[in-house]
Every structure is written in C-alpha cells, then in structure tokens.
Design a protein around this nucleic acid. Sequence first.
DNA 1: TACCTTACAGAACGATTATTCAATAATCAA
DNA 2: TTGATTATTGAATAATCGTTCTGTAAGGTA
Lengths: 206, 206
Amino acid sequence: MTETKARRRAGRPRVFDTDAALDKAVRLFWQRGYEATSMADLVAETGVAAASLYAAFDNKAGLFAAVIERYAATFSVHLYAPINDPALSTYEAVKGLLERAASSFSEPGTPAGCFMYSAAVAVSPASAAIECLLRDKRIAAEALLIERLQRGAAQGELAANTDPAVLGKFINTVMEGMSVQARDGATINELLSIAKMALDRWPAAI
Amino acid sequence: MTETKARRRAGRPRVFDTDAALDKAVRLFWQRGYEATSMADLVAETGVAAASLYAAFDNKAGLFAAVIERYAATFSVHLYAPINDPALSTYEAVKGLLERAASSFSEPGTPAGCFMYSAAVAVSPASAAIECLLRDKRIAAEALLIERLQRGAAQGELAANTDPAVLGKFINTVMEGMSVQARDGATINELLSIAKMALDRWPAAI
DNA sequence: TACCTTACAGAACGATTATTCAATAATCAA
DNA sequence: TTGATTATTGAATAATCGTTCTGTAAGGTA
C-alpha cells in the first residue's frame, strides 16, 4: 500500500480516474484485440481526451501495457487465487482454477474468454512487442501452475510417475482451449464439463 | 472436379495464379490475423496489383473468405483425415487427429498454431462478419468430431456412461489450447505429451 | 501577487487504410 | 477486322490511423 497522504505532485491535478479509465480500456482491448481497438475508440469509451491519454501512458502501446497490469491485478488475481491458497490440496487448487476459469470466461458482464489469450494472438510485425508482452504473461502463469504442481509432487500428492511440467502444460492447454470455447459461445456448464473431464483420472498418489 | 477443358470465359485471361496467390495470402493472414494484414501487405506478398485482387475477390473480406476455403481445402483436410478414415477405430482416429495437430501446429514452414483459431479471435465490430466466418468453421469442425464419436459410441467403442458431445468438446478444447501453446513456442514433443495426456482420459469400453 | 509545473481541450499532423477510377491490353465470337 | 468482354496497371480517392501541437486552466510554492 502506498502512502495515502502522499506528497501531492506539483501542477494541475489529474481530473480523470486512471483505474476507471483503464477498466474501460480493458473491456475494449479484451473484446476487440490490440490492433482493432483505435485510440478514437478508447477516447470515446473512457471519455478522456487523446492528449490526456498520451500524457498519462505515452502511447497506445504504453496504455496497453497498463491495461495488462490492470487486468492482471483484478481478473487474473481472482482466477489464480486457488493456486496461491496454501489451505488447498494440489488437486483442489487445480480444480478451483479450472472452475474459476469456467465461470469467469463465460461471465456475462465481461467479454468472453481470457484477455491474456485473446487480446493479441495474431498481430502485425510492428506490434510484435505487444504480442510478446502477453506471451510473457501466459508463460509466467504456466510456470506458476507448474511450480504449484511441483510442490504437490514433493509432498507426495501426485503419482510418482507424473511429470509436473507436463501435467501443468496440459492443464494450462485445457484452460487456453476453454477460452476459445467461451469466445465461441460455450456456456458455463459446458466449460465445467470440459474442466471435469480434464480432472478425471487425476494422477493421485496411490 | 470441374471440367478441365471448360469453355474459356470471354475477355482477357487472368495472368496470376489464383491458388498460388491464395497460398501466399493464407500465410500472411495466418501469421498476422485479419485486421493486422493490410491490402498493401497482400499486394507485396502475392505480387498481384490491388485492383486485380479486387477484381477477383471483390474486397478484403472476400479475399479472406477465399483464403479460409483454401486453408480448409489444404491444411484442414490433412488435419482431419483420420476422423474421416473408416479404417481407423474411434480411438485411433482421435489419436491421429491430435498427433497431426501436434506436428502441423509446430511445423517450421508455416506459422505456428492453427489458422482457424488465430486469424480472427478478437476483431473490430466492423469485421464481426469475418470473426463469424471462422467461428462457423470451428463449430462445424467440432460437430464433425462429435459425429465421429457418436458413431463410435453406437458401435460400442466408448464406455457406456460417456457423452460423445462432452468428449468431443473436450478433445476440441485441447486442440484449441495446443494451438495457443504452439504460438507461444511449444515444441512438437511438448504438444505430443499434451495430446498423450488428453488421450489418457480416454473412456474405452470395458 | 507572481511564478512553476502539470493537465486540460480541440485542432492539426503526416502516414496508412481499403477502395476505385481511367486508360490500356489481351482474349473471344462474329 | 470489328466489337464485346475481361484483366492489368498505376494513380487517385476519402476516411481513419496514431500522434503532436497550441493555447489555456488549475493546482502548488514563494
């Protein structure tokens, strides 16, 4: 937590709420992707003038980077909470992750699927850096999952012949596929059946 | 097969090879997606003048529609061949599908992943029809897989308590996830391990 | 009060977008 | 050879892209 009573910066104070604007921008990039979202769209949606957005975020790529962090701090934190919950068994943690994916990917109030998986999959060479930002986040999330599975394996929660790295990649793959399914209109119940099937034959220790 | 010696249309004959141009366009849209691929890019890559492309395909959306059919007639046909092969058991067919996905999604000569899953996932409202074209293809492919599983179930190849629709959606989800994994740099061996783990969930009849 | 700093609003920027026009070229049927 | 039809080329179209400039407003500090 930064100090609430922080020294006010000199100059005219910012009038627009940064997080509120980012929340609007998150929805837009989430729905349309990076390249298909124009600065004009962002200005219209946030109600913040273009020059103000540039002053705050440098350029479109900078705004997108801030949007990624905003999404991570809100939606991703909620999605991955079971993985970081020490009270849960490894199986419960993965089950919780997939079930949250099912509900969150099909949540009516937000665009379908996961922002990290849809916002910049295929992109022009000029925006390759943008694609990379999201790819790094995806890879980091997968690593987090694999680490959790490795801890579980170390505590004897997984069958001895199970490779946590492969299992983690598999779970992550199913989740990425669930995002595509959600984009194509899959209901929460369909997503839950998919998650259930992925959890079937869980390689528990004997 | 249309007649080879078809009556020549009146007027100046087309000089550029339509399929060759479409093959180039496939790669471009596959790599960059619909919106991030400009007509200028397509002109540079195919070597065909803009006006000629418009004469042949009406507009960018029409060209993209032709590109979809070209991809379906080449890559998709190869990918789904095991599903349509009556000599294979249901298990062998699905195994063949997933293994072809693993190798084709990581094939060095082509963009990573599957065109149908990456070329237009998040798109501007103006191009919503484009997104729909691909979604319809994805849903049709899933239906094809489910039909194959239903035939297998009817022949007693699946466990009695297995819902072919759920199993098909699960297999399809894994394949969609594998496309994202391939885009993020997964090797063919990693993709094969994922496919293997999905097949471990296979509900064979007792 | 007078500075200094930052943020605002709106117009303007050059570059790029998808698309079309006008002129010419190549084939067929007569 | 003449006319009809279609393709090609290269320039030109209006609209939109991300970005920046200009002038003014709103806060601090002295």
